[in-house]
Design a protein around this nucleic acid. Structure first.
Lengths: 162, 162
DNA sequence: TTTTACGTACAGTTTAAACTGTACAAACTT
DNA sequence: AAGTTTGTACAGTTTAAACTGTACGTAAAA
């Protein structure tokens, strides 16, 4: 039997925890859902989550998939049960840091590619048109600086995972 | 004299760079503004920025203040000039990492305080009401786990700055 | 003192993110 | 095979973030 006091407490912790989880780039609902699953330690169906958080089932579906994508929850199999079951994974620190670092590395590497594209395109262009004026900064050089920055960021976050 | 080709190139780099800058928690406009200032190396007034980016002066005012807050741009003084002048700071990596880490440390410490409040409140409550049921998880314990998590995150980001 | 120029507060608008509801395909049940 | 149940696609709505425009306080200029 769950007392009223316990529910109040539960809600307090969930809301506070969820705010931190949001910092890792999760939507408000994803964050609250994870916090809820983590706190209750329950293995739940979409319908139960929907009921528990008072949000639509569609939202539960997309949220839980987002969480699973980040490896923050796991799907659980039980014979005879047709519905999808999920539970929160427990090693908070490792999970969040890892998924977050991956996001950063992916994003910055992606941008770096874009910048290399520009650099390549630049080499096909008429140099005179771009370098002819000596007051404005040399964009070629600036581009290199920015690419270097991206490398640093990617490397930085990459190293953190160890 | 700035050629058309150079402007095109400029815009390409700016847009790509700005996307990365956004990752550090800046608004789209803040990001583009910084990228622009960084690329041109200009010292500009609000009106000039507004003109250059084609956005309102109000936006420039709030954006530049945001950037200054994060120490990504600096105000420049020139005798006889009444308007505010700003330029981008140049050591990209250091600047961005530092401001970002600070944000994280602040945010997580703040949440940690909130969680301690809950813990304190918990101790004033009737223990029986909360612990009476032995099937559901012990929230007291869960709370401690989450607080530990927050400490780890704060410590983690704090250590990165060195 | 009056006038002009500048930055920003604040209310309002636009744009993007988050969330919902219906409706449907796939899989299970009978 | 027909009837249920389940998860999700997709279009639509709501909510929040981003940005604009007017209007005003402050400070320099006349």
């Amino acid at each position: 039997m769950i007392t009223h006091e316990k529910q109040v407490l539960m809600k307090k912790i969930m809301n506070e925890f969820a705010k931190t989880v949001e910092l890792f780039g999760l939507t408000p609902l994803e964050a609250r859902l994870f916090a809820y699953l983590y706190l209750t330690e329950d293995i739940m169906t979409l319908d139960e989550m929907s009921e528990a958080l008072g949000k639509s089932k569609t939202s539960m579906s997309t949220s839980i998939r987002g969480l699973a994508e980040l490896n923050l929850v796991s799907r659980v199999w039980r014979k005879g049960v047709r519905k999808d079951l999920y539970r929160a994974n427990t090693q908070l620190f490792k999970l969040f840091i890892t998924s977050y670092m991956n996001k950063w590395v992916d994003a910055t590497n992606h941008r770096k590619e874009g910048l290399y594209e520009i650099k390549k395109w630049l080499q096909t262009q008429d140099k005179d048109a771009i370098h002819s004026d000596d007051t404005a900064p040399d964009l070629d050089e600036k581009l290199d600086q920015i690419i270097t920055f991206h490398k640093q960021v990617a490397t930085f976050f990459n190293n953190l995972q160890k």
